[in-house]
Design a protein around this nucleic acid. Structure first.
Lengths: 258, 258
DNA sequence: GAATGTGAAAAGATTCACAGCA
DNA sequence: TGCTGTGAATCTTTTCACATTC
């Protein structure tokens, strides 16, 4: 099942910069942008780290992968660092983005103010529902799925956002990839199979909540120690079947679909 | 700046289960639920791993932290594993959730189908805009922020979702925490300060896109090797100031706010 | 024979702690 | 003196490979 072709190499250390560091650069950038707007000229690793919510040693190590952009005894020049990180992230160029699936979430994304700044531009909105076609969301006309290939081709987008129901996600993904898209942000709660060379990042609300629930449960358990520690006794034979409701779903979209 | 009080201990290995493993459990659960619905009785680590998009060694190691729920030579009993993982994640109980900030995103979340299953229940919607108060979103009445404390108290929620603009996020967070909430899912693009014992997870669309852009840029660079490798020459003095538009924003909400 | 469970090795990420520079 | 930049130590996560069990 599942053509299991993704699996990010993990060891991708894209050009020497560790993935973990890349994932934090946007965080630093955000903090720096805020400082920049307040016209703060320089910032120390300690201050910036606090603003970004990491510790200073980590931040300095992260920056060391980019080069030596600080000044000992002084700190970092805010504007300079904003530029360097932006450049490293590729934000000095324009990134047209196409959003597929204009349901509640898709519409929310289309309206997302943070898109415009940072170099991302919503080039097109696409949905399979004909009744949406022609409508305008966030000032952008919604196009029908039929035109997907044409749109991707003409607008030269390389990043696609999938906000469709889980059931359509792989299909949409395949078409986006076939049309030439090489980066996908997936909001549908499903594992996407993509050929080598295509990047997929996923955002799944349900998963985040489940992780929170895990920790929350633990907290509760600490207060009132031992309560449900009854070790699972039933062996894989007449499999336990607690928590029924199998009729729920299990393959639902990240958010109300198109 | 920022009362920097969060910073998850990282070494949290909550009760022996590594964080990395906890983060994958929901993924396994989703794959297993799908199998369960197709009435597949057992599954091998290889198959399940493919369905979840990880490799089988990792999956087996992950499961080994939960206990020995498989059968050598056979695989895992789907129903049994669904139950065990659900229990481990705390999904066998009901988790009332409150969503604060009913803008585009908040509404999308309220409508999220995946909430209901998995044990999460939207107990209340809260917004600061009086014109929204009383309206019904996803069949739930929107309450005014004034009632936040009362609502949290009465409905006994322990998980709060913040979907407000960045500017209000910390304030809302403080009130939620003061009201007794100990787990927060933050969609606002800002670092939240919370006291010890409160868990925060963040989802930031803009960050995901920036990470994609980083890799996308790299790909482009590989095709046409060397092009903008001109090493940053300007030293932190008359700081470079490329990519103007400083008038954009930089502290915007994850998605159009309330 | 087939597939789990797990020690041990390898790879990555974080933190320490301090030399070195402004 | 103050703060960066970075080797070295530590901790975490992933992967390997195989003994063990059904």
């Amino acid at each position: 099942m599942a053509t299991g072709r993704n699996h990010r190499p993990a060891t991708t250390r894209s050009r020497g910069i560790p993935e973990a560091t890349v994932a934090r650069l946007p965080l630093y950038l955000r903090a720096l942008t805020a400082l920049s707007e307040r016209s703060v000229p320089t910032v120390s690793s300690e201050e910036l780290a606090a603003a970004a919510g990491v510790n200073s040693a980590k931040l300095r190590k992260d920056f060391s992968y980019l080069g030596s952009y600080g000044t000992r005894g002084v700190g970092y020049d805010v504007e300079y660092l904003v530029y360097q990180i932006s450049r490293e992230l590729g934000l000095t160029q324009d990134w047209p983005v196409v959003i597929v699936g204009i349901g509640n979430l898709g519409a929310a994304l289309a309206n997302y103010g943070g898109f415009a700044s940072r170099g991302f531009r919503v080039a097109a909105l696409i949905d399979a529902d004909p009744s949406l076609t022609g409508r305008s969301v966030a000032g952008i006309d919604v196009k029908h799925t039929d035109q997907l290939e044409q749109i991707v081709d003409e607008s030269g987008v390389s990043i696609g956002v999938i906000a469709t129901p889980a059931g359509s996600a792989q299909q949409v993904c395949d078409r986006l990839v076939a049309a030439g898209i090489t980066s996908i942000l997936n909001f549908a709660p499903t594992v996407l199979s993509v050929p080598e060379g295509v990047d997929v990042r996923k955002v799944d609300l349900s998963i985040e909540l489940q992780i929170l629930a895990f920790h929350e449960q633990r907290k509760a358990g600490e207060e009132a120690p031992e309560e449900e520690t009854a070790p699972p006794a039933v062996p894989p034979a007449a499999a336990v079947s607690k928590r029924p409701e199998p009729g729920s779903d299990g393959d639902r979209p990240a958010v109300m679909p198109a």
